[in-house]
Design a protein around this nucleic acid. Sequence first.
DNA 1: TCTCGATGTAATCAACTGATTACTACATAT
DNA 2: ATATGTAGTAATCAGTTGATTACATCGAGA
Lengths: 208, 208
Amino acid sequence: MSAEETSRLSAPERREQILAAAAIVFGERGYAGGTTDAIARQAGVSQAYVVRMFGSKEKLFRASALRAADKVGHAFRDTIATFNGDEDAEQKTLALAAAYTSLVADRGILLTLLHLFALGHDDTLGPLARECFLDTYRIARDEAGLTPEEANAFFARGMLTTVMLAMRLPDDAANPYASELMSCTFGELTTDLITLSQGQVPIDTSGR
Amino acid sequence: MSAEETSRLSAPERREQILAAAAIVFGERGYAGGTTDAIARQAGVSQAYVVRMFGSKEKLFRASALRAADKVGHAFRDTIATFNGDEDAEQKTLALAAAYTSLVADRGILLTLLHLFALGHDDTLGPLARECFLDTYRIARDEAGLTPEEANAFFARGMLTTVMLAMRLPDDAANPYASELMSCTFGELTTDLITLSQGQVPIDTSGR
DNA sequence: TCTCGATGTAATCAACTGATTACTACATAT
DNA sequence: ATATGTAGTAATCAGTTGATTACATCGAGA
């Protein structure tokens, strides 16, 4: 992904590339901790270009968060579209959970959303956090047809999953408590998620 | 809390005061976003004093996170100490959940932990995050005697609770989806948590 | 009362970082 | 071929912030 010697790209292509880089950097370091320079480096462009394309770091973060929430929404809707109406709640929940965990492969988006949620006290980012979260909740309730209790249990599991991935618990797979918790949370996908999580290379950290 | 005209205090007293202020500031703004100056202002001391007492911002954050995890551990152990061995899993889980939500009153500690967990990719803070989390998990498994599945469900609910509070979802109590989700997650404590959450005044944000 | 250690601050520094500006290079259409 | 708009960068600036230093003030014990 980084250090690609791509020549000129169209603005929409660069935009997507920068947003992908932003998801990784913001996902690992959060809003305040993620620098536009680190994002630029990850995307293979100059820091000035990143700022100019999005106007400001905050606008870039907003775009990054909205893109992440959009990806979650699309993954859910794609799954819901496969329902034929005969599924019970457990089947639907399992299918949605599988869709959610598959998003781990899209590096950074789940972690960027977690950082966004954690910044709910911020005057300008807080409303965005609540909007993104409630939009997703709405999909589970109205489009997937889960009951409040089912949706609640589903989101609880989702949050635990996200936090465990943010903590890099798969790095502690040798720890019996960690491995027990992961098996219990991820089920059959545990080994897949562990290899997936450990295969993600660190972002460039050297000076400007 | 802030702008107190307290005269000289002993070092341990100041230390605790600064740690309480740090929990609030780090809880709202995260590690990178929380400045030593904001913490100093919240504690009513100078920025230089905050840094010197803890050596560095990172050491202060570590102390703040450890203190938060310690408070969670103590709350759990205090609850576990009331068990007489006749409780079933649901009773124990409910009692622990009540203990956890009561920690919301200790402003910032749950949110500081969430920010710590979200920084699990950090080279130096990541191990601390996993340690704090697994220590708490260990208490639920070995000291409270929950099964892996019970502990899993308990932590899932706990994470959802924490994220909802971080997002300030109680501010959206007028939103039917938000209120439904809160009722479902918090049960009878919903109204208490809403008033508690809304009573917490913003931290000082004016210039240095 | 007079030290002397501990509490505490003002002033300042150096590094970092988001943003801006002026510029270059490439592609496409006429 | 040349003009023009778009992609892209190097250089630089100004504000912020963690850290350091030198200094001030309080209180307890000899």
